[in-house]
């Protein structure tokens, strides 16, 4: 019960802590622009030194996402992306020796339809290490937490700017792997600057919990990654990467070129953490 010591994500953060290092967690919309490219992107990110990555499962109605991720999800679904297809990409990545920690970012609508236990088991056996369920708040998380613990999957919970201090600590206590600290009240997407409160909020949370804290929503450049990682254990970058893929696609880039383009950007983002 609750044996996460073998979990790649847990081991990664232990290793980083021992080395006083921070990490970048790129987010990809799985199946955008197609599943083949997603496979190439995983290899590319690993080659650029990324240690942990989030794969967003496309959903028809993502209420927490801004236009970039929404559009990428719609395009992925149009291309025929399915949960099975995404899980196959992850299986291939693992059978090819892929070693990044992988988190599945999935709407609870999708998980519920497949059945919680069945879905988590399949994710685990395909090679995922963590679940991030953006529409499953603490009150409802009992539906997933114990099952995830049993399977050795981290169920990552989110803390928002609107969350009260007491509630933050309660959420943090129940979160596994890391705590996803949402930096802005609003949807995903690029922002010009990071709110001051984010830094203070992360520092405050740190005083109360040992679990690593990663900050996401609105981070889009190396400077912000560096700033965030002064206090947090990791910075999550999503829309900015997906936007690069979209621009590359619009230019008519091949899958390989798109992967290389995203890789080069991720390289920039990760440099301050070296």
């Amino acid at each position: 019960m609750n044996d996460l010591s073998d979990n790649r994500l847990v081991k990664l953060f232990a290793e980083l802590k021992a080395a006083s290092k921070k990490t970048l967690l790129p987010f990809l919309s799985a199946g955008y622009p197609d599943l083949e490219t997603t496979g190439l992107l995983l290899d590319e990110l690993q080659a650029r030194g990324v240690r942990a990555c989030e794969l967003g499962f496309p959903f028809s109605d993502p209420v927490a996402d801004g236009p970039v991720i929404q559009n990428s999800y719609a395009a992925a679904l149009e291309q025929g992306a399915t949960c099975d297809g995404i899980l196959d990409v992850v299986r291939n990545y693992r059978s090819g020796g892929g070693s990044m920690a992988l988190a599945a970012m999935v709407s609870y609508s999708i998980i519920y339809r497949h059945g919680v236990n069945e879905f988590l088991e399949t994710c685990k056996s395909a090679g995922f290490d963590a679940m991030i369920i953006p529409d499953l708040p603490m009150e409802e998380s009992q539906a997933v937490g114990p099952a995830a613990d049993r399977l050795g999957l981290c169920n990552v919970l989110l803390v928002a700017p609107t969350t009260s201090p007491e509630r933050r600590i309660e959420i943090a206590r129940r979160s596994r792997g890391f705590i996803y600290y949402v930096s802005v009240a609003g949807i995903t997407g690029q922002r010009d600057s990071l709110p001051e409160e984010t830094i203070r909020g992360v520092e405050e949370l740190r005083k109360h919990v040992q679990t690593p804290v990663c900050v996401g929503f609105g981070i889009s450049d190396p400077q912000t990654v560096a700033t965030v990682c002064q206090v947090a254990d990791g910075a999550i970058v999503g829309s900015a990467i997906v936007k690069r893929l979209m621009d590359a696609k619009a230019r008519g880039a091949t899958s390989r070129e798109m992967a290389a383009c995203a890789g080069a950007f991720v390289e920039e983002l990760i440099t301050p953490l070296r």
Binding site: A64, P134, P137, E139, L158, A160, P161, T162, T163, A185
Partner: peptide, 12 residues
Amino acid sequence: GGQFVPETLMPA
């Protein structure tokens, strides 16, 4: 029923 929404909305 329930409340399957992002944490940001829970306080509201």
